[in-house]
Structure formats: structure tokens, C-alpha cells
């Protein structure tokens, strides 16, 4: 374990954005088109990043390029999921992992708010009825799903 650390690694900041594998650059163009669509026609776009033929390091470079913005959310349903807005507002990343922590989906949504974060109308209805029940008899208070 120590041996690995003993490799002298000098981290150099890339002088230019290196998109040599060329799959990130077209993707960024696609994203910008999607963003325009969102702005002008209010049409959201979802891109399945698993379907993009990334070369080694491409995903890393894309994530670094887009950076992280103000919002991030954590979801616990059938394993963990993370949702975060990139440094470019309107561009979101959604990463789903299964119970063993393995990534099962990785998507980019160009939208105002990713659908998975919004509360489902049926849940609101259930929520309302159970809250009312709880108010009628506070000792029965419970959370949905238990």
C-alpha cells in the first residue's frame, strides 16, 4: 500500500482543456443546444451518459469542465442516488447507485428541476391524508413508508 504512494506524482493543471478523445466536445455542443431549447421552448432534455462512448478520463474531464453548482441532493431509494446541478445552471447530473453501491444509471438532465426530485401528486395526496390522520390523533403519528 505504501509502495503505491511512493510513486512520485506531479499533478499539473492542464494548460488547455484536453478533449482529445473528441466525445466530450460534441456532447458539450449538444448540451448547449439543449439549453437553448430549454430557454426558448421550455423543453427539457435527458442524456444517458452511459450511452456515450467515453474514453478513459473523458467523464472526469466533462465533470471538471462543467463543475458543481449550488444545489445537490441525496436520495435513498433502492440504494443511493446523487443529484447535483453543474456549475452551469440548468444542467443537472443524476447518478443512481444500487444497494451494493454500483452505478446503475448516470444521466444528465437539462431542465429546471430533475423529475426525480419533484414530489409525485399521489404522494402529496397520501401525505395529506396521513398528516390529517396524525393531527386527529397525534399519538398515531407516523411517516409514510414505515
Amino acid at each position: 500500500m505504501n509502495a503505491l504512494k511512493s510513486i512520485p506524482v506531479l499533478v499539473e493543471a492542464p494548460a488547455t482543456r484536453d478533449f482529445c478523445y473528441q466525445n466530450t466536445l460534441p456532447l458539450l455542443h449538444e448540451i448547449s443546444h439543449a439549453l437553448r431549447r430549454l430557454q426558448q421552448e421550455q423543453l427539457p432534455t435527458t442524456i444517458d451518459l452511459n450511452a456515450i462512448p467515453f474514453g478513459p478520463g473523458d467523464e472526469q474531464r466533462l465533470l471538471e469542465f462543467l463543475g458543481r453548482g449550488e444545489v445537490s441532493a441525496h436520495l435513498e431509494a433502492l440504494g443511493n442516488s446523487s443529484v447535483w446541478e453543474s456549475g452551469y445552471p440548468g444542467i443537472w447530473f443524476i447518478e443512481h447507485r444500487n444497494e451494493s453501491g454500483e452505478r446503475v444509471a448516470f444521466q444528465m438532465e437539462i431542465t429546471t428541476l430533475p423529475a426525480i426530485l419533484a414530489t409525485h401528486p399521489d404522494d402529496i395526496a397520501e401525505s395529506l391524508s396521513s398528516l390529517q390522520k396524525a393531527l386527529e390523533n397525534p399519538s398515531l403519528g407516523h411517516r409514510i413508508g414505515d
Binding site: 500500500m1 503505491l4 510513486i7 506524482v9 474514453g55 478513459p56 478520463g57
Partner: peptide
Amino acid sequence: DLNSDSAINARRLSQVQDVIS
């Protein structure tokens, strides 16, 4: 090549270390 993305580099080696652990 520690300077290449497309070869066994430091990132790959640490993945291997992780597997061994």
C-alpha cells in the same frame, strides 16, 4: 505509462490496490 490516460497509470494502480485490499 503514468502520463497516459490510456495505459496502466496511477489511477489504474490504485484501483488494483483497492481490489487486493
